[in-house]
Design a protein around this nucleic acid. Structure first.
Lengths: 152, 152
DNA sequence: AAATCGCGTGAATAAATATGCAAAAATCGC
DNA sequence: GCGATTTTTGCATATTTATTCACGCGATTT
C-alpha cells in the first residue's frame, strides 16, 4: 500500500511544484513523512513514466508527466486510483469520493488531470474528495464514469 | 553553421533510431563526421528541448522530441530550417527545396513532422527535398506556407 | 514451524548528464 | 585585414540518476 500512496504523492508534488532533481523529491517526501531514498525514487519515476523536461519559464529542468491528454494519464495512474479510493457516492450535484487517509489531495489532482466533461472543479480534505458538477444528472454520470474507470 | 547542421542531425538520429544515452549519440555523430564531445551534446539537447522517455516496446529510456503536435516543433526547429534551406520552388504538384549539403534528409524529416495539410509525402536526396501534393495549387500554397515559416 | 519464494527497499556504487572555466572559433565594426 | 566582442567548444569535474547486491518482511507451501 505504501508504494502507491507514495507514487501518488509524487504525482501530486510534481504537478504542484517545480521539482528539479530526485534529491529534491526525496526531501519533499521526507517532509511529508515518507521515509525513502533516492534509489527508490529513481525506480518510481521509471515506473510512472515521468520525464525531465525543460521548464519554459525558468529554463531549468523539472519533472513532469509525459505530455498530452491521451491515454498516458489513464493507463498509468488508474492503478493508484484503484488502491486509494474506497467509495464513490453522489449527493445532489456532487460526487463524493472516500479515500484512504491522506490520499484525497492526490486523487483530487488526478481528477483534475482527467479533465472529465462538465466537471466544474474538485476539492479535497484528508480522506474525502468532492467533485462539483452543474446538475444532479451529470454528477450521477460522472460517478458512473469513475466507477467504470476503477473496475476496469 | 556547423551548429545547426549538427543539431538537425541529432533530430534526425533520434527519430530514426532508439538513442539511449548521450554517449551513444556522440558515437553516431562521430560516425557521421561530426567531431564533438558529450558536453556539447548535453547542451544541444537542452537547447532543442529533447526529453528522455521510457520506450514502450523496449522498456529502456530513449531520447525523443517533446510529445505532441503543438507548437513545440515549429518554435524550436524553425531556426535550423532557416539556416539550412536555400531556396523553395514549385514544379507542378511538387515543392522542391534546395538545402545546404547533407541537410536534405533532416529537413525532409522536419517537414514530415510539421504534418502540413494535404502533403502526401516528402523525399530527400543530399541537398534536395521534394514535397509531393495532390494538385499544383496545393503545392503553391504549401510553398508559401514554408516561405512564411522561414521568414517569420 | 521451518523452508521457500517474491517483492520492495537501502547502501554503495556505476553510469549518465550538466556545468564552471579557459581556450578556440566565429562575428562584427572599423 | 585586425583587434574587440560574442559564441561555441572541450576538458575536467560536480551533480544527478540508474543499478547491483544483499537484506528484510509477508505470504505460501511443506
Amino acid at each position: 500500500m505504501a508504494r502507491s500512496v507514495r507514487q501518488s504523492k509524487i504525482l501530486e508534488l510534481i504537478s504542484t511544484r517545480e521539482i528539479e532533481t530526485q534529491d529534491e523529491l526525496v526531501e519533499c517526501l521526507r517532509a511529508a513523512n515518507f521515509d525513502i531514498t533516492q534509489a527508490t525514487i529513481s525506480r518510481d519515476i521509471k515506473e510512472l513514466g515521468l520525464i525531465k523536461i525543460l521548464s519554459a519559464e525558468t529554463g531549468k529542468y523539472k519533472y513532469s508527466l509525459v505530455d498530452s491528454g491521451e491515454q498516458a494519464v489513464s493507463n498509468k495512474y488508474i492503478s493508484i486510483f484503484k488502491e486509494a479510493v474506497i467509495s464513490i457516492k453522489t449527493a445532489q450535484n456532487l460526487v463524493v469520493l472516500k479515500t484512504i487517509r491522506a490520499m484525497a489531495n492526490s486523487i483530487c489532482g488526478l481528477i483534475d488531470k482527467l479533465n472529465l466533461d462538465s466537471v466544474l472543479g474538485a476539492v479535497a480534505g484528508d480522506d474525502t474528495v468532492m467533485v462539483i458538477l452543474p446538475t444532479n444528472e451529470q454528477a450521477q454520470k460522472v460517478a458512473t464514469t469513475i466507477e467504470a474507470l476503477i473496475h476496469f
